[in-house]
Design a protein around this nucleic acid. Structure first.
Length: 317
RNA sequence: GGUGACAUAGCCAAGUGGUAAGGCAGAGGUCUGCAAAACCUCGAUUCCCCGGUUCAAAUCCGGGUGUCACCU
Protein backbone atom coordinates (compact mmCIF):
# COMPACT_ATOMS: atom_id res chain seq x y z
CA UNK A 1 0.00 0.00 0.00
CA UNK A 2 1.24 3.44 -0.88
CA UNK A 3 1.10 5.59 2.17
CA UNK A 4 -0.08 9.15 1.99
CA UNK A 5 2.52 11.72 2.92
CA UNK A 6 1.11 14.24 5.38
CA UNK A 7 2.56 16.87 7.65
CA UNK A 8 1.50 17.09 11.27
CA UNK A 9 2.03 20.32 13.17
CA UNK A 10 1.51 19.93 16.90
CA UNK A 11 2.33 21.74 20.10
CA UNK A 12 0.78 23.64 22.96
CA UNK A 13 -1.84 26.30 22.59
CA UNK A 14 -0.41 29.66 21.52
CA UNK A 15 2.78 28.07 20.25
CA UNK A 16 2.19 29.22 16.69
CA UNK A 17 0.82 26.10 15.00
CA UNK A 18 -1.62 28.02 12.85
CA UNK A 19 0.99 30.25 11.22
CA UNK A 20 3.40 27.39 10.61
CA UNK A 21 0.71 25.14 9.14
CA UNK A 22 -0.36 27.85 6.75
CA UNK A 23 3.26 28.52 5.80
CA UNK A 24 3.88 24.85 5.06
CA UNK A 25 0.61 24.50 3.17
CA UNK A 26 1.45 27.45 0.98
CA UNK A 27 4.90 26.09 0.25
CA UNK A 28 3.76 22.62 -0.74
CA UNK A 29 0.32 23.38 -2.04
CA UNK A 30 -1.45 21.85 0.92
CA UNK A 31 -4.68 22.17 2.82
CA UNK A 32 -5.04 22.26 6.56
CA UNK A 33 -7.00 19.72 8.55
CA UNK A 34 -7.59 21.14 12.00
CA UNK A 35 -7.13 18.76 14.90
CA UNK A 36 -8.68 20.90 17.55
CA UNK A 37 -11.63 19.70 19.58
CA UNK A 38 -12.96 23.22 20.08
CA UNK A 39 -12.18 25.09 16.87
CA UNK A 40 -14.51 22.71 15.11
CA UNK A 41 -17.43 24.54 16.67
CA UNK A 42 -19.22 27.38 14.97
CA UNK A 43 -18.78 30.68 16.75
CA UNK A 44 -16.50 30.66 19.79
CA UNK A 45 -14.10 32.44 17.48
CA UNK A 46 -12.25 34.52 20.01
CA UNK A 47 -12.16 31.93 22.79
CA UNK A 48 -10.72 29.19 20.61
CA UNK A 49 -8.31 31.56 18.85
CA UNK A 50 -9.60 30.53 15.47
CA UNK A 51 -7.50 31.84 12.59
CA UNK A 52 -8.96 34.80 10.73
CA UNK A 53 -9.40 34.78 6.94
CA UNK A 54 -6.28 36.87 6.76
CA UNK A 55 -4.31 34.35 8.79
CA UNK A 56 -5.58 31.48 6.69
CA UNK A 57 -4.15 33.33 3.69
CA UNK A 58 -6.31 31.51 1.19
CA UNK A 59 -5.36 28.04 2.41
CA UNK A 60 -8.48 25.85 2.82
CA UNK A 61 -9.10 24.73 6.39
CA UNK A 62 -11.05 21.58 7.13
CA UNK A 63 -12.87 20.48 10.26
CA UNK A 64 -13.05 23.98 11.58
CA UNK A 65 -16.06 26.12 12.35
CA UNK A 66 -18.69 23.66 11.14
CA UNK A 67 -20.45 22.19 14.20
CA UNK A 68 -23.26 23.85 16.17
CA UNK A 69 -22.28 24.35 19.81
CA UNK A 70 -25.38 22.45 20.82
CA UNK A 71 -23.91 19.27 19.40
CA UNK A 72 -21.50 16.96 21.19
CA UNK A 73 -18.55 15.45 19.44
CA UNK A 74 -16.11 12.60 19.92
CA UNK A 75 -12.77 11.26 18.73
CA UNK A 76 -14.56 8.62 16.70
CA UNK A 77 -16.46 11.22 14.74
CA UNK A 78 -13.33 13.28 14.32
CA UNK A 79 -11.31 10.42 12.87
CA UNK A 80 -14.04 9.57 10.38
CA UNK A 81 -14.44 13.17 9.26
CA UNK A 82 -10.71 13.84 9.09
CA UNK A 83 -10.13 10.76 6.97
CA UNK A 84 -12.78 11.96 4.56
CA UNK A 85 -11.15 15.39 4.44
CA UNK A 86 -7.75 13.83 3.79
CA UNK A 87 -9.18 11.80 0.90
CA UNK A 88 -10.66 14.92 -0.60
CA UNK A 89 -7.41 16.85 -0.29
CA UNK A 90 -5.38 14.05 -1.81
CA UNK A 91 -7.85 13.68 -4.66
CA UNK A 92 -7.07 17.30 -5.51
CA UNK A 93 -3.41 16.47 -5.59
CA UNK A 94 -2.78 18.45 -2.43
CA UNK A 95 -0.97 17.56 0.76
CA UNK A 96 -2.90 17.38 4.03
CA UNK A 97 -1.36 19.42 6.82
CA UNK A 98 -2.82 18.27 10.12
CA UNK A 99 -2.54 21.04 12.66
CA UNK A 100 -3.88 21.11 16.15
CA UNK A 101 -3.39 20.74 19.83
CA UNK A 102 -5.80 17.94 20.59
CA UNK A 103 -3.29 15.14 20.92
CA UNK A 104 -5.88 12.41 21.15
CA UNK A 105 -7.39 13.46 17.83
CA UNK A 106 -4.08 13.73 16.01
CA UNK A 107 -2.80 10.40 17.27
CA UNK A 108 -6.05 8.58 16.64
CA UNK A 109 -6.15 9.84 13.09
CA UNK A 110 -2.55 9.26 12.15
CA UNK A 111 -2.21 5.93 13.92
CA UNK A 112 -5.46 4.83 12.36
CA UNK A 113 -7.18 3.86 15.57
CA UNK A 114 -10.28 1.83 14.78
CA UNK A 115 -13.48 3.01 16.39
CA UNK A 116 -16.03 0.28 15.87
CA UNK A 117 -19.72 0.98 15.82
CA UNK A 118 -21.36 0.67 19.16
CA UNK A 119 -24.99 0.07 19.97
CA UNK A 120 -26.86 3.07 21.31
CA UNK A 121 -25.46 3.60 24.76
CA UNK A 122 -27.51 6.28 26.51
CA UNK A 123 -29.44 3.86 28.70
CA UNK A 124 -26.41 1.92 29.86
CA UNK A 125 -24.51 5.08 30.65
CA UNK A 126 -27.45 6.48 32.58
CA UNK A 127 -27.78 3.29 34.58
CA UNK A 128 -24.09 3.40 35.46
CA UNK A 129 -24.31 7.03 36.52
CA UNK A 130 -27.23 6.10 38.68
CA UNK A 131 -25.29 3.30 40.31
CA UNK A 132 -22.37 5.63 40.94
CA UNK A 133 -24.74 7.78 42.96
CA UNK A 134 -26.20 4.96 44.98
CA UNK A 135 -23.32 2.49 45.30
CA UNK A 136 -20.39 4.84 44.96
CA UNK A 137 -17.46 4.75 42.58
CA UNK A 138 -15.60 2.25 44.76
CA UNK A 139 -18.16 -0.46 44.10
CA UNK A 140 -18.07 0.17 40.36
CA UNK A 141 -14.30 0.11 40.35
CA UNK A 142 -14.35 -3.20 42.20
CA UNK A 143 -16.68 -4.50 39.54
CA UNK A 144 -14.30 -3.36 36.82
CA UNK A 145 -11.48 -5.15 38.61
CA UNK A 146 -13.52 -8.34 38.28
CA UNK A 147 -14.55 -8.05 34.64
CA UNK A 148 -11.52 -6.24 33.21
CA UNK A 149 -8.59 -6.37 35.61
CA UNK A 150 -6.23 -5.15 32.91
CA UNK A 151 -8.03 -1.84 32.47
CA UNK A 152 -8.71 -1.50 36.18
CA UNK A 153 -5.01 -1.76 36.92
CA UNK A 154 -4.36 1.19 34.62
CA UNK A 155 -7.03 3.42 36.08
CA UNK A 156 -7.25 5.31 39.33
CA UNK A 157 -10.51 4.85 41.25
CA UNK A 158 -11.08 8.59 41.29
CA UNK A 159 -11.08 8.79 37.52
CA UNK A 160 -14.81 8.24 37.36
CA UNK A 161 -15.17 9.08 33.68
CA UNK A 162 -12.87 6.30 32.62
CA UNK A 163 -14.10 3.75 35.10
CA UNK A 164 -17.64 4.34 33.93
CA UNK A 165 -16.65 4.24 30.30
CA UNK A 166 -14.82 0.94 30.74
CA UNK A 167 -17.86 -0.64 32.33
CA UNK A 168 -20.12 0.89 29.73
CA UNK A 169 -18.15 -0.72 26.92
CA UNK A 170 -18.19 -4.03 28.69
CA UNK A 171 -21.94 -4.07 29.21
CA UNK A 172 -22.63 -2.70 25.75
CA UNK A 173 -20.51 -5.11 23.78
CA UNK A 174 -19.82 -8.00 26.11
CA UNK A 175 -16.17 -7.36 25.43
CA UNK A 176 -13.63 -5.63 27.64
CA UNK A 177 -12.27 -2.28 26.62
CA UNK A 178 -8.76 -3.73 26.76
CA UNK A 179 -9.65 -6.30 24.10
CA UNK A 180 -11.13 -3.60 21.92
CA UNK A 181 -8.13 -1.38 22.46
CA UNK A 182 -5.87 -4.12 21.18
CA UNK A 183 -8.00 -4.70 18.12
CA UNK A 184 -8.20 -0.96 17.43
CA UNK A 185 -4.50 -0.84 16.67
CA UNK A 186 -4.29 -3.75 14.30
CA UNK A 187 -4.87 -1.94 11.04
CA UNK A 188 -1.79 -0.21 9.76
CA UNK A 189 -2.12 3.50 9.15
CA UNK A 190 -2.41 4.72 5.59
CA UNK A 191 -0.61 7.93 6.51
CA UNK A 192 3.08 8.58 6.34
CA UNK A 193 3.46 11.69 8.46
CA UNK A 194 6.33 14.00 9.22
CA UNK A 195 5.72 15.30 12.72
CA UNK A 196 6.73 18.82 13.64
CA UNK A 197 6.30 20.08 17.19
CA UNK A 198 6.49 23.66 18.36
CA UNK A 199 7.74 24.47 21.83
CA UNK A 200 9.89 26.85 23.83
CA UNK A 201 12.98 25.85 25.73
CA UNK A 202 12.03 28.51 28.24
CA UNK A 203 8.52 27.64 29.38
CA UNK A 204 8.03 31.17 30.67
CA UNK A 205 8.11 32.50 27.10
CA UNK A 206 5.14 30.29 26.24
CA UNK A 207 3.30 31.43 29.34
CA UNK A 208 4.00 35.07 28.50
CA UNK A 209 2.52 34.47 25.06
CA UNK A 210 -0.54 32.86 26.60
CA UNK A 211 -1.04 35.76 29.00
CA UNK A 212 -0.74 38.24 26.19
CA UNK A 213 -3.15 36.32 24.02
CA UNK A 214 -5.77 36.23 26.77
CA UNK A 215 -5.44 39.99 27.23
CA UNK A 216 -5.85 40.32 23.50
CA UNK A 217 -8.97 38.14 23.55
CA UNK A 218 -10.48 40.38 26.20
CA UNK A 219 -9.70 43.42 24.09
CA UNK A 220 -11.37 41.80 21.10
CA UNK A 221 -14.61 41.16 22.92
CA UNK A 222 -14.37 37.83 24.69
CA UNK A 223 -16.88 38.98 27.31
CA UNK A 224 -19.48 39.69 24.68
CA UNK A 225 -18.83 36.38 22.98
CA UNK A 226 -19.21 34.57 26.30
CA UNK A 227 -22.50 36.32 27.01
CA UNK A 228 -23.83 35.26 23.64
CA UNK A 229 -22.65 31.73 24.28
CA UNK A 230 -24.45 31.51 27.60
CA UNK A 231 -27.68 32.46 25.92
CA UNK A 232 -27.63 29.15 24.06
CA UNK A 233 -28.33 25.69 25.43
CA UNK A 234 -25.00 24.15 26.31
CA UNK A 235 -23.80 20.86 24.95
CA UNK A 236 -21.31 18.73 26.82
CA UNK A 237 -18.33 19.11 24.54
CA UNK A 238 -18.39 22.84 23.83
CA UNK A 239 -18.98 23.70 27.47
CA UNK A 240 -15.58 22.24 28.30
CA UNK A 241 -13.82 24.92 26.30
CA UNK A 242 -11.46 27.19 28.18
CA UNK A 243 -12.70 30.73 27.91
CA UNK A 244 -16.32 31.01 28.96
CA UNK A 245 -16.45 28.85 32.03
CA UNK A 246 -13.64 30.81 33.67
CA UNK A 247 -15.62 34.00 33.08
CA UNK A 248 -18.84 32.59 34.50
CA UNK A 249 -18.10 33.49 38.15
CA UNK A 250 -17.62 37.08 37.03
CA UNK A 251 -20.99 37.12 35.26
CA UNK A 252 -22.51 35.67 38.40
CA UNK A 253 -20.99 38.52 40.37
CA UNK A 254 -18.88 36.23 42.51
CA UNK A 255 -15.44 37.52 41.53
CA UNK A 256 -14.04 40.72 40.03
CA UNK A 257 -13.12 40.75 36.34
CA UNK A 258 -9.36 40.83 36.91
CA UNK A 259 -9.60 37.64 38.91
CA UNK A 260 -11.62 35.92 36.19
CA UNK A 261 -9.00 36.90 33.63
CA UNK A 262 -6.24 35.61 35.89
CA UNK A 263 -8.08 32.29 36.25
CA UNK A 264 -8.49 32.10 32.51
CA UNK A 265 -4.78 32.60 31.98
CA UNK A 266 -3.94 29.97 34.55
CA UNK A 267 -6.36 27.46 33.04
CA UNK A 268 -4.78 28.05 29.65
CA UNK A 269 -1.25 27.61 31.05
CA UNK A 270 -2.22 24.33 32.62
CA UNK A 271 -3.82 23.19 29.42
CA UNK A 272 -0.62 24.00 27.56
CA UNK A 273 1.35 21.94 30.04
CA UNK A 274 -0.93 18.94 29.59
CA UNK A 275 -0.60 19.22 25.84
CA UNK A 276 3.17 19.20 26.11
CA UNK A 277 3.02 16.16 28.36
CA UNK A 278 0.98 14.38 25.71
CA UNK A 279 3.22 15.24 22.79
CA UNK A 280 6.48 14.76 24.63
CA UNK A 281 6.12 11.00 24.64
CA UNK A 282 5.79 10.93 20.86
CA UNK A 283 9.34 10.34 19.71
CA UNK A 284 8.48 10.79 16.04
CA UNK A 285 8.12 14.52 16.57
CA UNK A 286 10.83 16.86 15.31
CA UNK A 287 10.78 19.64 17.85
CA UNK A 288 11.38 23.23 16.90
CA UNK A 289 12.18 25.49 19.81
CA UNK A 290 10.93 28.96 19.11
CA UNK A 291 12.85 30.97 21.69
CA UNK A 292 13.85 34.21 20.05
CA UNK A 293 13.20 33.08 16.49
CA UNK A 294 11.12 34.86 13.86
CA UNK A 295 8.22 33.23 12.00
CA UNK A 296 10.41 33.03 8.92
CA UNK A 297 13.19 31.26 10.76
CA UNK A 298 10.71 28.79 12.20
CA UNK A 299 9.20 28.06 8.80
CA UNK A 300 12.68 27.58 7.38
CA UNK A 301 13.53 25.16 10.15
CA UNK A 302 10.33 23.23 9.55
CA UNK A 303 10.98 23.11 5.82
CA UNK A 304 14.43 21.72 6.48
CA UNK A 305 12.73 18.85 8.30
CA UNK A 306 10.11 18.16 5.65
CA UNK A 307 12.62 18.46 2.83
CA UNK A 308 15.03 16.10 4.55
CA UNK A 309 12.27 13.51 4.75
CA UNK A 310 12.14 13.49 0.96
CA UNK A 311 8.43 12.75 1.04
CA UNK A 312 7.07 15.89 -0.52
CA UNK A 313 7.45 17.65 -3.80
CA UNK A 314 6.92 21.34 -3.92
CA UNK A 315 3.97 22.96 -5.61
CA UNK A 316 1.09 20.53 -5.27
CA UNK A 317 -1.57 21.15 -7.90
C1' G B 1 15.48 59.04 68.02
C1' G B 2 11.57 56.13 71.16
C1' U B 3 7.96 52.17 71.75
C1' G B 4 5.59 47.89 69.95
C1' A B 5 4.53 43.90 66.53
C1' C B 6 6.27 40.64 63.02
C1' A B 7 10.23 37.59 60.30
C1' U B 8 8.40 29.79 58.41
C1' A B 9 8.92 27.14 50.49
C1' G B 10 8.26 31.60 44.72
C1' C B 11 3.52 33.68 47.36
C1' C B 12 -0.26 33.26 51.45
C1' A B 13 0.04 30.74 55.94
C1' A B 14 -0.70 26.99 60.59
C1' G B 15 2.31 25.67 64.32
C1' U B 16 3.97 28.68 71.79
C1' G B 17 9.14 22.92 74.02
C1' G B 18 8.71 16.62 71.43
C1' U B 19 11.13 16.24 65.77
C1' A B 20 7.75 21.64 60.06
C1' A B 21 -0.36 21.45 58.61
C1' G B 22 -2.84 23.47 54.57
C1' G B 23 -3.77 26.61 50.27
C1' C B 24 -2.00 29.05 45.83
C1' A B 25 1.72 29.31 42.05
C1' G B 26 4.94 25.75 39.73
C1' A B 27 6.88 20.82 38.05
C1' G B 28 6.27 15.67 36.40
C1' G B 29 2.83 11.98 34.70
C1' U B 30 -1.75 8.98 32.93
C1' C B 31 -4.88 8.89 28.71
C1' U B 32 -8.95 4.84 22.78
C1' G B 33 -16.17 7.29 21.73
C1' C B 34 -17.23 14.62 26.36
C1' A B 35 -9.79 15.08 25.78
C1' A B 36 -9.48 23.06 26.08
C1' A B 37 -12.16 17.28 29.80
C1' A B 38 -11.02 13.82 33.65
C1' C B 39 -7.41 11.80 36.86
C1' C B 40 -2.55 10.77 39.64
C1' U B 41 2.25 12.21 41.93
C1' C B 42 5.85 15.95 43.89
C1' G B 43 8.27 20.95 47.31
C1' A B 44 11.44 23.37 53.73
C1' U B 45 17.26 17.68 56.57
C1' U B 46 14.80 23.12 58.31
C1' C B 47 11.70 28.05 60.33
C1' C B 48 16.19 35.89 59.07
C1' C B 49 21.45 35.69 61.48
C1' C B 50 24.66 34.78 65.93
C1' G B 51 24.95 33.02 70.82
C1' G B 52 22.54 30.84 75.21
C1' U B 53 18.96 27.64 78.27
C1' U B 54 17.22 22.40 77.69
C1' C B 55 17.65 15.38 76.98
C1' A B 56 14.94 18.14 73.14
C1' A B 57 14.03 24.98 70.34
C1' A B 58 10.48 27.38 64.52
C1' U B 59 8.65 27.67 69.53
C1' C B 60 12.02 30.12 75.66
C1' C B 61 16.22 34.00 76.76
C1' G B 62 20.08 37.71 74.99
C1' G B 63 22.21 40.34 70.92
C1' G B 64 22.13 41.67 65.71
C1' U B 65 19.61 42.60 60.98
C1' G B 66 15.17 43.61 58.22
C1' U B 67 9.93 44.97 57.58
C1' C B 68 5.62 47.29 59.35
C1' A B 69 2.78 50.29 62.82
C1' C B 70 2.43 54.08 66.28
C1' C B 71 4.89 58.08 68.97
C1' U B 72 8.41 62.30 69.00
Amino acid sequence: MNKLPVIAVVGATASGKTALAVGLAKYYGGEVISADSMQLYQGMDIATAKPTEEEKAGVPHHLMDFLPVTESYSVARYVAAANAAADLIVSRGHIPVIAGGTGLYVDSLLDNILFEDEPDNAAVREALKQRRETEGIGALFAELERVDPETASQLHVNNENRVLRALEVYYLTGETISERRRRSRMRESCFDPVWIGLDYRDRQLLYDRIDRRVDDMMARGLLKEAEDYYRLPQAATASQAIGYKELKPFFDGVIPPEEAVENLKRATRRYAKRQLTWFRKNDRIHWIFRDGKTEDEILAEALAVTEASGKYSRGGA
